[in-house]
Amino acid sequence: MKKLLTSSFAFSVLAVASIQGHSELALQSGQAKISWGSQDSLSKAKAIMYNNTDVSSNTRTTQTVSVAPQTNYQNNYQNSYSNNANSNWSNSSYYYANSKGALVVDALTGQVIYEKNADVARPIASISKVMTALVVSESGANMNDIVTVDSLDFKTPKKSGSDRLKVGDQMNRAEMLLMMLMKSENPAAKALARTDPLGYDGFMAKMNQKARDLGMTQTVFYDPSGLDARNVSSPRDLAILGRLAYRHNLISQFSTTPNRNFDVNNVSSGYRSISARSTNYMVRDGLYNIGFSKTGFIREAGNCVMFETNVNGRPSIVVLLGAPDSKTRWEDAENIISNLSMRRFT
């Protein structure tokens, strides 16, 4: 099942509100700032991230959620869908995954649809950046503050090269967050953590505390990018994180942006344009209805992906860890989506 979405991805980055004209991330020439529609500021993004604003797009309605312990989170999530989450699914199709770990969950009810080694913790590579994004979004830091990439941001457990970012590059925090989620830039993750109000060590403490608060008992983070193989989680833990990330407007929209051109200032060499695109081909090509996405790869983790897909009007969270190669990862993903299309509800 490969159908092109009937709804356009033109709203991709910041179009989570119905605004006259199209609302997207418009980078002003010679400036590093975001415009929302005709507004030359980040006020809308801040409202979404910090004020629990409910914002409708032309394809779906999403809501930010203030999350405390897991029990409150589950109750809030369930209550918000009380009108349409009561149906059960029946299934005659065949789910399988060649990835080492997998979990498919109904995003409305939390009901497990398919699982494989769902409670085995494995390295998760750049899927770590989902938690990084969540902590950034809840930090209260000004999204319009300029973040400068430092040489320290390239000093990571593994070599952290970049074909996009350089030492001295400057973007505001929201643009850095977009670059991290869409292009999976490791220096962007490190820069966001380093410039947190509590500093780098405080940021890492918040990542691990957030995991505990959500009930992610098999999860630990040692760096914000996922290059540290000690960053581990299980598919079941990541499904908890995925259900939250999907409902977080800015994370959802940023992680499903197909491509973007950034006008970036460098303190030494001045302005240049950076072209970047999503690491998920299903997002880049507009295949399927993907409401949240993050890929990952390091040698220890294999090929990983976590995403939300809405099939037949029903959202599901899919987690795949430890695929031996990229081809297997995407074959697993497409098989699962195909089987979801054959679900029937009673």
Rank of each mutant, 00 (worst) to 15 (best):
S7R: 03
S8F: 00
A10S: 13
S12T: 09
S12W: 03
S12R: 06
V13A: 15
A15F: 02
Q20T: 07
G21N: 13
A32S: 09
W36I: 11
W36A: 10
S38D: 15
M49Y: 09
N51A: 09
N51K: 15
S56W: 05
S56P: 05
T61Q: 04
T62Y: 01
S66Q: 08
Y73S: 15
Y77N: 03
N83T: 12
A85S: 15
N86D: 03
N91Q: 11
A97G: 11
K100C: 03
A102F: 02
A107V: 02
A107R: 01
T109F: 03
Q111P: 01
I113S: 02
N117P: 02
A118Y: 00
I124P: 07
A125P: 14
A125M: 10
S126Y: 08
S126D: 08
I127Y: 11
V135D: 01
V136N: 06
A141E: 12
T148Y: 14
S151P: 04
D153F: 08
F154I: 12
K155P: 03
P157M: 06
K159S: 15
A174Q: 04
E175I: 09
L177G: 06
P187T: 10
L198F: 13
G199F: 09
G199Y: 11
A205M: 04
M207K: 02
R212F: 07
R212I: 11
D213Y: 08
Q218P: 05
V220H: 12
Y222R: 03
S225G: 14
D237V: 11
L241R: 00
H248F: 09
Q253W: 04
P258A: 07
N261A: 14
V264H: 05
V264S: 08
N266T: 09
S268C: 03
S269D: 08
G270N: 07
Y271S: 09
S273K: 08
I274Y: 07
S275A: 12
T279W: 05
R284F: 09
F292W: 06
S293I: 04
S293Y: 01
F297R: 14
R299M: 09
A301I: 03
G313C: 13
I317P: 02
V318P: 01
L321G: 00
W330T: 04
D332C: 03
E334G: 10
I336C: 06
S338K: 08
L340C: 12
T346E: 14
